[in-house]
Design a protein around this nucleic acid. Sequence first.
DNA 1: TCTTGAACCTACAGTAGCTAGAGGGTGTAA
DNA 2: TTACACCCTCTAGCTACTGTAGGTTCAAGA
Lengths: 142, 142
Amino acid sequence: MLTIGTLAKKTGTKVQTIRYYEQIGLLPEPGRSAGGQRRYGDSELDRLSFVRHARQLGFSLDAIRELLDLSDHPDKSCAEADAIARRQLKQVEQRMARLEALRTELQRMVHECSGGHTADCRVLEVLRDHSECLTDHDEIGA
Amino acid sequence: MLTIGTLAKKTGTKVQTIRYYEQIGLLPEPGRSAGGQRRYGDSELDRLSFVRHARQLGFSLDAIRELLDLSDHPDKSCAEADAIARRQLKQVEQRMARLEALRTELQRMVHECSGGHTADCRVLEVLRDHSECLTDHDEIGA
DNA sequence: TCTTGAACCTACAGTAGCTAGAGGGTGTAA
DNA sequence: TTACACCCTCTAGCTACTGTAGGTTCAAGA
């Protein structure tokens, strides 16, 4: 039986995060010691590892909830899990494309800056005048 | 003189967001009509455009605050603005590298999925077993 | 001049995914 | 038994907004 601190160390999670996952129903309520402290077994360790790995791959907690549910029902079709992963992949690709455009413009700003006074700063100038912008950014957020 | 709604349309910002920027001190308090409604001039339009453009490039509101301050002092050295932009560029490059790794693993998951039952789903299997993971992910978040 | 309806106002709550702190209780080894 | 690391709950905070409730103002048309 593991304490919450041990589970945290084993999974690279903060203690508060584990309690948070329990609170939002991502992890089941664990058993408790006589004094009321949480005690975990291997199944909880596996479940939390699953969650952390999925988080590291950028899945949202909602998506992870779906994936966990699928994982709990081995007879269900795999198609749904596949769809979630594809959706995630698409999001990652979109974000990459967006960052690519940002990188280009930031590089331009930085390379053109000659290092004088802010009055002539290319960085500020580019920010001031959107029309100089080579790329279109409809959406905000990386 | 522009109403807040017109300013919002011209800059592609939501009305609430403009009020929020004012609240956190990113935009100055504007003049008001006799009835108490906000009225904006060209300087506010420029300032908000600057903010939006910087946001679109992924700068944080804190970074934008610094950039605005520099922009307000044309005699200051450009070096600081340059440093902020370089920091941002670095962040973008780091995020891209991270997304690249995620994309690789997601592609692997998706390509290996044969479409049967979740019991044999590669997607879930990969998530379950971190040791199969080709990449290291210390940090969470794109 | 009056009315209508869109646009405005403030204040507060909610979003994701945690993280930190206060103030107190538990578990274990010396 | 005492020390001390660890655990508990509860609440608030973070970023950058977004939405809602309940009420007021403005400008155009009758």
